[in-house]
Design a protein around this nucleic acid. Structure first.
Lengths: 200, 200
DNA sequence: TCTATCATGTAACCAGTTACATGATTTT
DNA sequence: AAAATCATGTAACTGGTTACATGATAGA
């Protein structure tokens, strides 16, 4: 199959909302913000117009009416097309089914962490643990607050997933600290030695 | 503190390698590839030159000699500056210490998964589990192979971390399938109902 | 009434990717 | 000697972000 004509994930959210009802870009923005989708999908005012434009040239949405109301600027309302629905469905399927190779910044940091000394690394990892638990608490609270408003947990699974990732991160970090500092065969001594050699 | 003048993580790797010895961009590329850094940091031939250029204008690296050897094209060798070393160190510290808010595609997918039917979603999630375990096996094998070559495990922590994330993903997905399909109070019936309402 | 904020869109800029160019070496 | 691959870099294009513009409403 050919690569997607529009790859930006913001386009997925746009298709999803337009599949419910036609809207104009600004309204899409408000809706995305109201539903806290910015937590899951990066977007800003400008990129919305860009993405909608891309979707239009790809034939996934069409400009419906472009009227002005009072003396507001033009508002162009877009509707999803059949091709757009197909793309939405297919794309979502793919994203759920096939785990993507991604580039979290902590992976990059770990791959270069040798450049820090073992003591410094451990100190930083300990601070990371604190931040991780703060973030976890925030998300936990967000979930509870939202559930209390009567929202079905189905609409919060992405936050559950975030918590799962944070927990895995924390567990990994704890383990890593152990492997560095273990008094028997921790990495610290050798690590320090390697570092001393390459820094003249 | 002001935002980083160069944000691309590839620049971090470049600074790290240049802190060992001056190199020209092509050599950096070879080195990155040899060390399998492409698994942790996205890069391609073109972006290397861009990033090195950015680092130069930011004053983190300087062009040293630009000679030609035989009749090869010009090769410009870059060296790290003191400011560059400081940036490398500070940036690495930050990346280890503070967990970034990121946008994995599965988070986006989960936030919109309601648009799929519960049965379809479960089927896809099951396939995801298979793929996750395949990926895990591949990484496991990579780690073992590399360790067998005598590489110190410190230089493989990022792969350990990937495995931790894959495991967390899989555990989450298994749990999610359970929450959807649970015969007592699984989400499937309500979910199907919601979906039917909004799709006329 | 002046100022802020909302509503809506466009344009300019910057970052990142893909494609192109060209001589050197190795393989067939 | 032709073809492939390595070595090295630049240029063109596309995607994404930031900044700008402008009328409308609400608050001080």
């Amino acid at each position: 199959m050919p690569p997607r004509r529009v790859r930006n994930l913001l386009a997925l959210a746009v298709l999803s909302y337009l599949s419910r009802q036609p809207m104009h870009p600004y309204e899409l923005g408000r809706t995305l913000r109201k539903n806290a989708d910015e937590r899951s999908i990066k977007f800003n005012h400008g990129s919305l117009y860009m993405v909608v434009g891309q979707l239009e040239t790809a034939g996934f949405v069409v400009a419906q009416e472009s009227g002005r109301e009072g003396r507001r600027p033009e508002r162009t309302v877009y509707a999803i097309t059949d091709a757009g629905r197909a793309e939405l469905h297919d794309w979502l399927r793919e994203l759920v089914e096939v785990p993507q190779h991604e580039y979290p910044s902590f992976v990059a940091a770990l791959s270069l962490i040798g450049a820090l000394g073992p003591d410094e690394a451990v100190a930083l990892l300990r601070r990371r643990l604190e931040r991780l638990s703060e973030q976890r608490a925030e998300i936990r609270e967000l979930i509870d607050r939202t559930l209390a408003e009567g929202v079905h947990p189905l609409f919060l699974v992405e936050e559950d997933y975030r918590i799962a990732l944070l927990d895995a991160d924390a567990a990994f970090v704890r383990d890593l600290i152990g492997r560095i500092t273990d008094p028997q065969n921790g990495w610290a001594p050798l690590w320090a030695e390697l570092l001393a050699k390459e820094t003249p």
